[in-house]
Simulated assay, not measured.
Amino acid sequence: MVQTLTDGRTNLVIILGMMQVSKKIPFDDPQVLLGVRALYVVTNVIILGIYFYIQTKINAKKDLTTLKYVEPPPMGSQEEPKLVTTTVHSYDMSQLRGMYKSQLMGVAMMAFMHLYMKYTNPLLIQSIIPLKGAFEGNLSKIYLLGQPAVGDLKRPWKAAGGMMGMGGGGEVKSDRKSIEQAEKAGSGGVKEE
């Protein structure tokens, strides 16, 4: 939780700082605009390269250790928490798919804002924040930086909340009592492949 707050504050400082810097950049100059666009494209290529490297490391390790956890229902839903039985490999691949999807959605939104709405300032900010996030993700810490999967990196990971860590339907639980309750309730338990 403390790490999330620190990351949020750091991102806020970067955004505010880059907003001030971007006010001084002459985006009217075609050469400057081309340079900022190139920076944005290069950082996204680097991010996709990082994700691809992580994918190769996940597939090379192919950890088939069974992982059980109780997934909370969506916020506002009347559903029961669902038991998920999977493998570390499948879990990591699903997390990586989410990272790819998030990055591509960010690129699509930035393309709309820049090409259709003619905003140029966010290009600079979006060249830095996603790159920082790619290096700070749990998969990067494990597969890129070689940190052991213990403590905050022990799977399953806490879902990142919405704005400033708020929101979400609850916490993912992996303790024995929660898993046994979900098994008795018969909520899920189908192994993902």
Score class of each variant (00 low, 15 high):
V2A: 14
P26F: 15
H114N: 15
L16S: 13
N138G: 06
M117A: 13
G170Y: 10
Y100A: 07
E180G: 07
G169K: 06
Q78L: 13
S127M: 08
I129L: 04
D63C: 03
L124Q: 06
H114M: 11
I129M: 02
G188K: 11
P26C: 15
L153T: 09
E136A: 11
R9I: 13
V190S: 11
F135N: 03
V88Y: 06
L144P: 02
V88C: 04
A182C: 11
N138S: 09
G146A: 04
G8C: 10
V84S: 01
I129N: 01
Q20V: 15
L144I: 13
T120M: 08
A149S: 11
L83C: 04
M109G: 13
M93E: 05
T10V: 15
K57H: 03
G146P: 01
I25K: 09
K191F: 03
T6W: 08
L104A: 04
R9A: 14
T65Q: 06
V36W: 01
M19E: 09
L67E: 00
K24E: 13
Y119M: 15
Q31V: 13
L123W: 07
T65N: 03
T56Y: 04
V32K: 15
G188I: 08
A182I: 09
K184N: 12
V190K: 14
S127E: 04
S22Q: 11
S94Y: 04
I46Y: 01
R37M: 08
G146E: 02
I58K: 00
A160M: 13
P122F: 05
Q147C: 02
V41S: 05
L124M: 12
V88I: 12
K177T: 12
V13P: 00
F135Y: 08
M1W: 10
G8E: 14
G151F: 10
V36M: 10
L5W: 05
L12W: 13
Q103N: 11
L115T: 12
N11T: 10
Y116M: 12
L145S: 04
D175H: 08
M105Y: 05
Q3L: 10
K61Y: 03
L16H: 12
Q147G: 01
K154I: 12
V42E: 02
D152A: 15
G168Y: 06
G106F: 08
Q3T: 11
I54N: 00
K184C: 10
M110F: 06
A185L: 14
T10P: 03
T85E: 07
V36S: 03
H114A: 15
K62L: 03
K158D: 15
K82M: 06
K158M: 13
K118H: 14
Q147H: 05
M110P: 08
G76P: 02
E192L: 12
L115Y: 09
I50L: 03
V32G: 05
I129Q: 01
I46K: 01
